[in-house]
């Protein structure tokens, strides 16, 4: 059976080996992969504004985007295709006495977004919707 020293070498050697492979793959992903999958050239000022608002308002605290976030509100990766720009703008700018958008039965926070900010969010969702996400979200399979 293995000695303690051999077990230690297994731990240190394995960790080093797999850390090097991971760093190599990460380097490729960060320098080439993400660029070719997310068309960063299309990140206009409006997209960046939308991305900043996404972060600043913790939209991920209720919604998911690219499947990441919380599970209280709809997945938004393809929301631009699904609902279109007008619906999105109406929802994020909706005023209801402090209760916010709730037409579908669950309330969103009521935001005081300007027209420009709402357009930014729309541009951001459009940009995210055009990413290559390796097939996510999958189209429905049950007809």
């Amino acid at each position: 059976m293995l000695t303690k020293k051999q077990a230690k070498i297994f731990f240190l050697g394995g960790t080093l080996l797999f850390a090097i492979i991971f760093l190599g793959l990460s380097y490729d992903t960060v320098t080439n992969g993400i660029t070719s999958h997310t068309h960063p050239d299309n990140m206009t000022e409006a997209v960046v504004l939308g991305r900043t608002l996404w972060d600043k308002n913790n939209c991920m605290g209720c919604h998911t985007l690219m499947g990441e976030g919380a599970y209280y509100a709809p997945e938004l990766t393809k929301v631009y295709d699904r609902r279109g720009p007008d619906y999105i703008k109406t929802a994020v700018m909706f005023k209801n006495n402090g209760l916010g958008w709730g037409q579908r039965g669950r309330h969103m926070v009521e935001y005081n977004f300007t027209e420009k900010e709402a357009d930014g969010l729309v541009a951001f969702f459009k940009w995210v919707g055009e990413m290559d996400l390796n097939g996510y979200p999958a189209p429905p399979t049950i007809k």
């Binding site: 797999f18 999958h37 990413m131």
Partner: peptide, 16 residues
């Protein structure tokens, strides 16, 4: 370490 990849599947990264 390489298992980190299971968070990357659908986030705009290469297929590997």
């Amino acid at each position: 370490i390489l298992g980190t990849g299971h968070h990357y599947y659908f986030t705009g990264v290469p297929k590997y």
